[in-house]
Design a protein around this nucleic acid. Structure first.
Lengths: 220, 220, 220, 220
DNA sequence: GATGAATGAGGATTCATTCAT
DNA sequence: AATGAATGAATCCTCATTCAT
């Protein structure tokens, strides 16, 4: 991981507006990487968005790749961490798919660009960059897998379908955020608006309810 | 390397070389664009994969963008067309979500790189290139929307949830194919293997069944 | 000089409109070279203007340079030849600057693109291509030089001014045709229209009259 | 190699290298554009002549066209400005064709590459680039036009010949400088040598004298 | 910490030319 | 005689990166 001197404290070290430069670079980069992906994003774009000259980026990050890694880490890290925590610490509801879904929606709603970053990453293939993702994804998927196995309606699923089911849930969630910009361009509706997010959360709850609940009972 | 129908019988009979060059270029480009997306794909890569020199591409396509458009058209066109046909002709089962899902899986299974192309496209934003996608997506989504509205169990959903529901189904399907390479890299399992595809189809059917079926009755 | 099989006789060897292809190529090339000069003219432009495919040019001319040379030869050749003839054969009036000027105007008026070709050539420097020009220019200039020397009023000029004087006349004539397109773009007036050409001829005659006439009076 | 003020005292003190790089680029470009015209000049040639790597040009000019425009502006601007000033301020002699001619010769003698630039421009047609030229040319020509009208001897010319007359003078002047390199290649004489320039100035004065002087006698 | 200048590598594209058909 | 396909060389330009200031 790069030099990312994130979390400096100096409150705007003179002349600098708002956050420390490194942070502002991360913000700009996050936006651009999320919009266009890694290779379609140029450092000049990033610098321009920050309002600095592009060589200045190198005072904060060793390379484009390092910057990208820093963005991923900053963004994905906390979310996956929070999720892991919730899931693995056995917090209340951590075993209930519905509550997990809700929690994930909550987390992502606050970082709506993250899913696009992840999507770009997973699309662009399994290079080294994904290492981080892998490290976090694998255990989370494993946990989700177990969660499904022990959920009420588990008997409904063939064991070898469970990974597919987990993937399906994953795609519903990630895809929703990912497609938001295009959806807005097409329909004019903002999927990231609070109301829409609530609708989606409710939908998710219902889907989970329909899938992970003992059919007979839940119906009875 | 994909199914690229390269290696025609005659091992390039020295001279008739360019027989179906355009087609071979499209194949190569399809693969690369699907793997890496537009901007991460260089024309040199394409040319190399075809086994020609990169300026030769210009004998067949006017520009990188034109090549990309041609790939999209060749790939997406027929599938969406087939789908539209199926959906709009009122063919048998065209109103049944389960059968539609099945049909879509069938179509995509034969062109597994297509979903990645679409994913790259929808991710990279609403440029002009997506026009084609839009033109096809919008009516298909509209149709899906209507289909849900009249499906049994429709009363379970809030009207404004239906678009979300359609998106969810869309993402389950597209996401599955999209993540296949990464999934294989992570777990060793090939989601595009016949068995896996069958599992996914069955899963889809069950999900659809669970979601688009009158609850009371199915319960009763 | 190239293979330029100019002057074929076959009257349109089947399917071909109008002149033989080689001639049509020369026409197109003449126009483009005159407009844009050698390096700004592409063979594709030429071919397009002829209505053929650019490799076909090579059936008629060995190379771009050969084509250029052929154009120059076809265009400049006859004019300079006619001029030389007129000048050197001692035709009537061949020693009278006014009549020479008139004759030159006459010749150029019929080939108004020629001066631009010459201008491009003389501008683009003394490469090999100019050889032909040199071969023709030098004797003509020499002749003009002598003509001035023996003209009435010659005593008005310093001997070492005579080359300058010849150049001046040359530039008045060549420049007039050369600037025609720009002039038209700027003012809307077509310098190549018959009336304008007449005006210019008259002007030339008067200038020559004023410069190459015994100055006894003006001196007296 | 031209007057390029390269080789500043400090032999490029390693680091401050780029001192007046932009200026040196303009010098090099001026030379090449004047020699060969726009499209025959490659940026690599320019860079090589400057002694830098060709992408470095882009640190100083946005594109080849921008560089070209900058050259034109730097070169043509001041001269036309000086000329305009002289002509329009009613400076002493600004109404006297002979003195104007002299002044122009003076100005051009100091920037002998300028006429070639102008010639290339006027030859290569009326693209946008010529805008600057047009803007300057039109009023200057208009002024010259008026000047001729009120000069003694004006009654000798038909009103509609006056533009032709102005053009003729223009071509004598511009053509002289333009043909210098070729002339030297052909004859060995350098038209830009001081002596030659004086001869040409004198010639010009005499021509103007002969043309713009009350001709009562010659007419009578 | 910021930046102007420089650059090697590469990227899309054009061009003149060749060759087999 | 014409052309579709192919190509080496070159062109303009971009990009990530370095370095001295």
């Amino acid at each position: 991981m790069p030099a990312a001197p994130a979390r400096t404290f100096k409150p705007t070290p003179a002349g600098r507006r708002g956050a420390a430069t490194a942070e502002r670079i991360l913000d700009a980069a996050e936006g651009l990487f999320a919009e266009r992906g890694y290779s379609a994003t140029t450092l000049r774009d990033v610098a321009t968005r920050v309002g600095i000259q592009n060589p200045s980026l190198y005072n904060h990050f060793e390379s484009k790749e390092a910057l990208y890694a820093a963005v991923l880490e900053r963004d994905i890290g906390p979310v996956l961490e929070a999720l892991s925590e919730f899931l693995l610490d056995g917090s209340e509801g951590s075993g209930d798919p519905a509550q997990v879904a809700e929690r994930v929606m909550e987390l992502l709603a606050r970082r709506p660009r993250l899913p696009r970053l992840v999507a770009h990453e997973t699309l662009s293939g399994g290079d080294q960059l994904t290492r981080m993702l892998r490290e976090w994804m694998v255990p989370v998927f494993a946990r989700a897998h177990r969660m499904v196995e022990i959920s009420p309606g588990a008997e409904r699923w063939n064991p070898d379908q469970i990974p597919h089911l987990v993937l399906a849930m994953y795609h519903i969630v990630i895809g929703y955020f990912t497609i938001a910009p295009l959806y807005e361009a097409l329909t004019g509706d903002d999927l990231l608006a609070e109301q829409a997010l609530e609708r989606q959360t409710r939908l998710l709850r219902e889907i989970v309810g329909a899938l992970f609940t003992s059919t007979e009972k839940s119906a009875g």
